[in-house]
Design a binder for these strands. Structure first.
Lengths: 146, 146
DNA sequence: CTCATTGCAAATGGTTTGCATTGGG
DNA sequence: CCCAATGCAAACCATTTGCAATGAG
């Protein structure tokens, strides 16, 4: 059910939006494509000092609009970005290490179909996140307290 | 499926947490109990000038911990509070007027049960919001463009 | 009385903006 | 060339915090 990674193409996504291929954007795209894990805007700002903070925020927003990146959030609401590997999915966020996995499950689609029929008004979107302590973090705890 | 309102008791919730019943807290609780709709912390700060901003933020946090208030968010992530009327539920947020309804649906519980079996790691929480254009807003649009 | 709580005002921190400069097409 | 895009620094703004004064138990 957890979805395997596929190759993203962030530059193509920007091109689709009719955006110019500037040097900072290419740098950002290349950098993000190497990132298997979720990250915050500030992470990028720290790890990619050759691109200005404003450009990072502006480009992340573009990439989310383009559907190449998705924006989740920790339980406290602080935003988390992740390169988008699957068409339609939701997120499993480890509250301990911040790792984000994508998942898809028939029960989820079933649920939304059922709700669509019964909720008054027009459904325009949704947000679904599952918070976990991932197996790695769980193991680490076991070891620490042993 | 949309849940009907019942009477909340915010003061009791604070008492359960072993908190003192101070004047500002009583004022806040009374005020919130009259609010049928969702609100932001800043809304309260504006509409209840007799209570300091810091106390408002501190008390809202307490009430969320106590389970008397729940914290949702708009699609852009800006937080929204709402008096909690049902035991376990999720939210339908109108992106046009900000109205928040509570709902509960067997398909939702089924979905989480199914996921619990298949997700690696221990599930510690979740977030589910459905964004809609509510019937009122839809009507208003129809009238405007007619 | 004592210590939790308050309220102010200042600090914080992530995000956005104004504007002169740069560089892609 | 021209205008979109950049980068810096300042502005923003919701939220948090330090601390002296207050008041609940």
């Amino acid at each position: 059910m957890v979805i395997d990674h596929a190759k993203p193409d962030l530059l193509a996504a920007l091109e689709d939006l009719g955006q110019r291929m500037t040097r900072p954007r290419v740098r950002l795209a290349r950098y993000l494509e190497t990132k298997p894990e979720a990250f915050s805007a500030e992470d990028v700002n720290t790890e990619l000092p050759s691109v200005g903070r404003a450009t990072i925020y502006r480009t992340l927003k573009l990439l989310v609009e383009a559907g190449a990146l998705c924006k989740t959030a920790m339980p406290d609401g602080s935003p988390l970005y992740k390169v988008d590997y699957a068409v339609h999915h939701h997120h499993i966020v480890c509250t301990s290490c911040g790792k984000v996995d994508e998942f898809r499950h028939p029960a989820v689609e079933r649920m939304f179909r059922a709700m669509r029929k019964e909720i008054p008004g027009e459904i325009v979107g949704h947000r679904l996140e599952v918070f976990v302590i991932c197996v790695n973090c769980k193991d680490a705890r076991g070891r620490a307290s042993a």
